[in-house]
């Protein structure tokens, strides 16, 4: 098991290395003079010279790359040249908002997807299965922004039951300390317990629509894979053995089928994290959610390349990490790997 983890960790290194090269190239191979491209045609000669200096463009490429890599390893992800702030600091400040949204979306996707998949598998080839299939087809076919806008229109504009955008009612004047709204609600100094509860509930209410919009695609995929996995496992010989032993259907379902059916579902859940991070970029735009995603979109508009480059790098890092963790969890759940 330890050997497996070490092997997986070592396997991630070349990918990280490649990633750094790709993103290095992203800035340094911009067609034409990168400094001019970054600053625009109208920048003063002095600004351009400063930028060339900062980027180290006058050094040979390998030296530039080593400098860049050394910077990364020291946590220097560059500075935004809109406000000259270090990218990492701003990223970390905004990241909790994205994490909160992503986790909420994942809870929605897993919490609904797995029961739905099991339900469809139980009624395989009958109408409830068909209904779930149609639902998951729509799930993967509706873009996040279309679903987001539709949800806003139905629940915020027409029914007025949920807020349309932002993370929390601004009138509450919540202190953002951790920038996790649902945590900060409890940390807010000077509020009574009831006020804290109100703020928390308000935060949850703001999360509902974006989480559904963002979670719809993973929901569809998790539902499909759960259904397929349960159906496949239900036809295994060992399930027949379990029946022949006279176990109750409940026990067969919970122990013999689900413990095996889980395995592919876990892998797929891990793979969805990448999609969620990417989807968060769009969801945050739709719901005016002040996270990393909106930041990246603004940065593209402002041609703030370092922000774009670094955010992609960090997202990729997170994605790799999550998948590593999921693979290890998979190995843990699967004795055939654990005791290999």
């Amino acid at each position: 098991m330890t050997k497996y983890i070490v092997r997986r960790l070592l396997g991630a290194i070349p990918v990280l290395f490649g990633l750094s090269i790709v993103l290095f190239a992203f800035i340094h191979l911009i067609p034409g003079d990168p400094a001019t491209a970054i600053l625009g045609q109208h920048a003063t000669a002095q600004r351009i010279a400063e930028m060339r200096e900062y980027l180290g463009l006058d050094d040979p490429l390998p030296v530039q790359y080593v400098d860049y890599l050394a910077g990364l390893l020291q946590g220097d992800f560059g500075r935004s040249f809109i406000n000259n702030q270090p990218v990492l600091g701003e990223f970390l400040r905004r990241f909790p908002a994205t994490v909160e949204l992503t986790i909420a979306a994942m809870i929605f996707a897993v919490g609904v997807g797995i029961p739905l998949g099991r339900f469809a598998a139980r009624y395989a080839q009958r109408w409830p299965d068909g209904a779930v299939t149609v639902l998951s087809l729509l799930g993967i076919s509706i873009p996040v922004f279309v679903l987001g806008l539709t949800l806003q229109y139905i629940f915020a504009v027409q029914l007025k039951v949920l807020p349309a955008s932002s993370r929390i009612d601004a009138r509450l004047q919540l202190d953002l300390q951790t920038n996790f709204v649902l945590i900060d609600a409890w940390l807010h100094a000077g509020w009574t317990f009831d006020e804290k509860v109100d703020a928390f509930v308000d935060g949850v209410r703001h999360l509902v629509l974006p989480a559904i919009a963002l979670g719809s695609i993973p929901l569809a995929i998790i539902t499909r894979i759960t259904r397929a996995s349960v159906i496949e496992v239900a036809n295994e010989d060992y399930v027949r053995t379990a029946r022949a032993k006279g176990l109750t259907e409940r026990r067969i379902d919970g122990r013999h089928i689900m413990r095996n059916a889980w395995l592919p579902v876990v892998t797929v859940i891990g793979l969805q994290v990448g999609g969620l991070l990417a989807g968060a970029v769009i969801t945050e735009t739709v719901f005016a959610w002040n996270g990393v995603g909106r930041w990246i979109v603004d940065a593209i508009g402002n041609r703030d390349y370092f922000v774009v480059q670094s955010t992609i790098l960090i997202f990729a890092l997170i994605f790799l990490m999550v998948n590593l963790i999921v693979d290890i969890a998979y190995a843990f759940l699967n004795p055939r790997i654990r005791y290999a």
């Binding site: 095996n260 699967n334 004795p335």
Partner: peptide, 15 residues
Amino acid sequence: AMIFQDPMTSLNPVL
């Protein structure tokens, strides 16, 4: 009681 053909697949691999 019943015993099946393939003991490789007749026992649950995760239990």
